[in-house]
């Protein structure tokens, strides 16, 4: 089957031009072999994008690449690199919005991993399910991590903040919304190691007395244990 690759949050108007296509989110870790194109000490999500593009090269008709403030400079650079390598890349910027969508998934009682997966799937297909809102006992701020398994440490009463909440709200470059956190909700401020958002996560963790965590590939035992301790002591 032929594929349309995407990363970040492409402009929905561009995505509408591919109504019957099979999409693949290149941000996700599919265990593609390391291409060695990007440095080893680099954002794991960006390495996924480039490694996946190379791995699925024969099946990719086009890559719709998010290169504006809804993604990052690294996304823009990767787009240029892949174009230079002969990929068919369409760049999109999605920085202006007419509305703010509701965020029922971020506030729901679903397991955190499920919340994040549903929100990200919503870029291509919005769910029509209804969700039960829960009072937040904990918060998870950040982007969808490369390692989704450590999200199982969080209880269902964890609300989603940061860029992932912005995605659900349909405003992925809304920095004000991205920097929002609830004062009295103990929150883990997560950033992918080597990502520019480490700056925000570290700052906000201090501002809101939360826990700053950066993880590169898979969460180490220490990273998992400190999140667990934060939740149990929270």
């Amino acid at each position: 089957m032929r594929l349309v690759g995407i990363w970040g949050y492409p402009d929905p108007e561009i995505l509408k031009k591919y109504p019957d296509s099979e999409f693949i989110d290149l941000d996700i870790n599919y265990n593609a072999p390391t291409s060695g194109i990007l440095p080893d000490a680099y954002c794991r999500i960006m390495r996924n994008i480039v490694d996946n593009a190379l791995f699925f090269r024969d099946r990719l008709d086009v890559i719709i690449a998010s290169v504006g403030r809804e993604k990052c400079d690294s996304g823009w650079f990767a787009s240029h690199i892949l174009k230079d390598m002969g990929f068919n890349v369409i760049e999109t910027r999605y920085e202006k919005y007419n509305q703010t969508l509701d965020i029922p998934i971020s506030r729901s009682n679903l397991p955190l991993k499920k919340k994040i997966n549903l929100i990200m799937e919503g870029i291509l297909t919005k769910t029509r399910n209804s969700f039960r809102e829960t009072k937040p006992e904990f918060g998870f701020w950040g982007v969808p991590p490369n390692d989704l398994d450590f999200l199982d440490i969080f209880p269902g009463t964890t609300h989603v903040y940061g860029w992932t909440r912005c995605v659900e709200a349909g405003r992925p470059a809304d920095l004000e919304l991205e920097m929002f956190a609830d004062d009295n909700v103990p929150t883990v401020f997560f950033a992918q190691a080597f990502c520019a958002k480490m700056q925000l996560a570290k700052y906000l963790a201090k501002k809101y007395s939360g826990l700053y965590v950066d993880i590169d590939d898979k969460a180490s035992n220490s990273a998992r244990a400190k999140i667990e301790a934060f939740i149990k002591l929270g």
């Binding site: 007395s209 826990l211 700053y212 220490s222 400190k226 301790a229 002591l233």
Partner: peptide, 19 residues
């Protein structure tokens, strides 16, 4: 290295360096 902080008799903050 790992640390915890108590403030006003209650747990307040922690961290643990991993690598």
């Amino acid at each position: 290295i790992k640390w915890v902080k108590f403030e006003n008799g209650k747990y307040r903050d922690l961290d643990w360096n991993g690598s």
